[in-house]
């Protein structure tokens, strides 16, 4: 379970997160949407300790991220993250990208790590790309490798930061399909996305952020058809055409 309690964060004088409260139960999928600059990505980075916050608390399975005794490196092992621009290691083959952390962090043998990596590549549908370099892959394929790289650590939570917004339209579905499968298998996921089809299909909760605040939350069709907040209404009407 991830608990976010009264979290505020500033970049200098600018407040990016304003008193955020949210709880994500195990096995749930939460979708975060909102205009750019609303603090969605920053919130995601705070959840696995990549960005510090100045007020409040984020607690993952009972461990507070702001507690100096918490080992962030250890905690991040169970929180996978997928980025907008894939962020694969350009100097390593696909297979090396996936096996690096299991071998160095979990001390798995090369054989064991590669076996697991091949299973994951099978699962995301590109086992034939194992020995290619990221530059030779399409965006959709790179993003699926990035998902496989995160899954190789067998995380309990997965964070997705606009995983499809850097992709050409025809590649979006191949990535979303992998994510839908993950959600259905019971992975706990927090997804920043504007793919409302995905949100409708798998989200247990949808939150809408604007100017650093959560201004609307919903868990069903009502969120899409009858949002209460004017800002949400306007936003949804712009992206749901």
């Amino acid at each position: 379970m991830i608990e976010i309690k009264n979290v505020s964060k500033w970049f200098g004088d600018f407040q990016v997160l304003k008193d955020i409260n949210e709880t994500i139960q195990k096995g749930q999928t939460m979708v975060i949407c909102g205009p750019s600059g609303s603090g969605k990505s920053t919130l995601l980075r705070c959840i696995n300790g990549l960005e510090p916050y100045q007020k409040g608390e984020i607690i993952v399975d009972g461990e507070s991220l702001s507690d100096p005794k918490t080992n962030l490196y250890k905690l991040r092992q169970k929180i996978g993250m997928v980025f907008q621009r894939f962020e694969l290691y350009p100097h390593m083959t696909v297979l090396k990208n996936i096996t690096l952390a299991p071998m160095k962090v979990l001390k798995k043998s090369k054989k064991e790590a590669e076996k697991k990596a091949m299973e994951l590549l099978e699962r995301v549908g590109i086992p034939d790309k194992a020995h290619e370099y990221p530059a030779n892959l399409s965006g959709g394929q790179q993003q699926r490798v990035a998902i496989a790289r995160s899954l190789a650590m067998e995380p309990e939570y997965m964070l997705f930061d606009e995983p499809t917004s850097a992709l050409d339209p025809e590649m979006i579905n191949e990535v979303l399909d992998v994510m839908v499968d993950l959600a259905k298998e019971g992975m706990t996921m927090i997804v920043v996305t504007h793919e409302m089809g995905f949100a409708r299909e798998v989200a247990d909760e949808i939150i809408f952020m604007d100017e650093g605040r959560i201004i609307e939350r919903g868990s069903d069709e009502e969120f899409f058809t009858n949002p209460k907040n004017e800002r949400t209404k306007l936003f949804l009407s712009q992206i749901l055409v």
């Binding site: 980075r45 696995n48 990549l50 490196y73 250890k74 991040r76 092992q77 929180i79 996978g80 993250m81 980025f83 907008q84 621009r85 962020e87 694969l88 290691y89 350009p90 100097h91 690096l100 952390a101 160095k104 962090v105 979990l106 990035a146 790289r149 995160s150 190789a152 650590m153 964070l159």
Partner: peptide, 30 residues
Amino acid sequence: ISVDLIHAAYSTGLTYTQTARYVLIPIAFR
């Protein structure tokens, strides 16, 4: 090297030293 690439390495549980050794230094060197 983009900050997110370093974040990606951290998010798989790699430590600072491991990230420097396997990601930062080899890319910068090339």
